[in-house]
Simulated assay, not measured.
Amino acid sequence: MLNRRDMLVGGAAAALAGSISETRAQVIATAAQGQRAISVLSDGAFEMPRSMLARDIPIETIAQATGAAGPSTSVLNVTCFRQGDQVIVFDCGSGSNFLPGTGKLGASLEAAGIAPDSVTHVLFTHLHPDHFWGALDDFDTPLFPNARWHADRREVAFWTDAKVYEKLSEDRHAFAAGAQRIVKALGETLELHDAGSEWIPGVAAFDTAGHTPGHVSFELKDASGPVFVLGDALTHKIASFAHPEWRPTSDHDADLAVATRRRLLDRAATEKAQVIGYHLEGGIGRVERAGNAYRFATPG
């Protein structure tokens, strides 16, 4: 069994973070969708080299486009959706085994008045550490003891493939080891689904592969308008919108991720959807067209 030191030394920290930013547990944003409530909760934040925002783009160009030099802060936004007697969580943070500055979901749930045993469903966009490792608490038991867990079958198949290590750089091997451990621990409570269908009533998954092989985003359907929970299909509040053609180093299939971003941005702008990105500061916003590109518009 991997412990925290094994995971960090194994490369997860080097792959995604430079210096670490401390962020207090908090409720980032709230919104109503008809008779249903949405809360965006913080799992903390970390800092990563700004060069990770785009492969083969000069750092000076990245700094100018994003309005800052030095490390880029990446926030972790966990979405909670309450409808009737259901409490649905999208991704579940990084837990205590990832990076300092992260793993604050438990405190944020408490701040929002959401008891872990009240959560009925957890839906994963993908199985990267900062989205999946929080599924287990410090005692290696499920954080949400009464929940059903849901993931894309392509995503689970990729990370649990015996040959997955041959498909990954060495600094990503800990990602696979952690995913395999948690999939095994969740056992039969982890339900596998296909993109393009409702995973639970009122919540449909749609394909946004590229960041990972089985990455999905979710649409919350309501007469008041759609809400998209995007995971890591869009990961930076400026770069992902103004330069969807850039190829972040964290994307597994960079070319597919570019095509996915372009399609997603066009759809979100056309449908005037509210969007929630896991790493987008501000939590909830909308995609607006800006010349030949886009921008992330948040309330206020």
Rank of each mutant, 00 (worst) to 15 (best):
A239D: 00
A185P: 01
A54S: 09
A254M: 09
K104I: 02
L99R: 08
G210R: 07
T249A: 14
I62F: 04
A107D: 11
L256I: 09
K184Q: 14
E60T: 10
L265D: 00
A242E: 11
V122P: 01
R5V: 15
P116D: 13
A63Y: 05
L2E: 15
E191V: 04
G291A: 11
L230W: 02
G282V: 10
W133M: 14
A63T: 04
A111N: 06
A254V: 10
L53T: 07
A65N: 02
L168T: 03
K221L: 11
G44D: 07
R286V: 05
R4W: 02
D255F: 09
T208L: 07
H243L: 02
E271P: 02
I28W: 06
L265H: 00
G84H: 14
T260H: 08
F132H: 13
A177H: 11
D56Y: 11
S108T: 05
P129M: 01
G291M: 10
G282R: 11
H211A: 10
H121L: 10
P49V: 00
A151L: 10
F206K: 13
I28F: 00
A179I: 08
S94N: 04
R289S: 03
A259L: 15
S108R: 06
A297D: 08
R262A: 07
F158A: 06
A32H: 09
S74K: 04
R82Y: 02
K163P: 00
T189S: 15
D91S: 13
P116V: 05
S51F: 07
L2W: 10
A268L: 10
A290H: 11
T73R: 15
F98C: 08
P201S: 06
R261A: 07
V258F: 10
R4I: 13
V227I: 15
F139A: 12
F98T: 09
A13L: 11
V287C: 08
L76A: 12
N97F: 05
L143D: 00
W159Q: 10
T270G: 05
L186W: 09
G34Q: 13
A223T: 08
D130E: 06
V78I: 15
S39V: 02
D207P: 01
T298S: 12
L109T: 02
H121P: 00
A69N: 07
V216W: 09
P142V: 07
R181S: 15
L2N: 09
P71Y: 05
A68R: 12
T249H: 13
G231R: 01
F228L: 15
G84R: 13
E288L: 12
F132V: 09
D161K: 01
M52S: 09
V9L: 13
D161Q: 09
R172E: 12
A151I: 06
F228T: 03
G210W: 01
A273H: 03
W246A: 00
G202Y: 10
F81V: 06
R148A: 08
A205V: 04
S96N: 12
W199F: 05
A32Y: 04
R289Y: 06
Q83S: 14
L136Q: 01
R148S: 12
A31M: 08
C80D: 03
A135N: 07
A242N: 07
P201H: 05
I114H: 05
T30M: 15
A162F: 10
D232T: 12
T270A: 15
Q274N: 07
G196M: 11
T141Q: 15
E188L: 11
Q64I: 05
L99D: 00
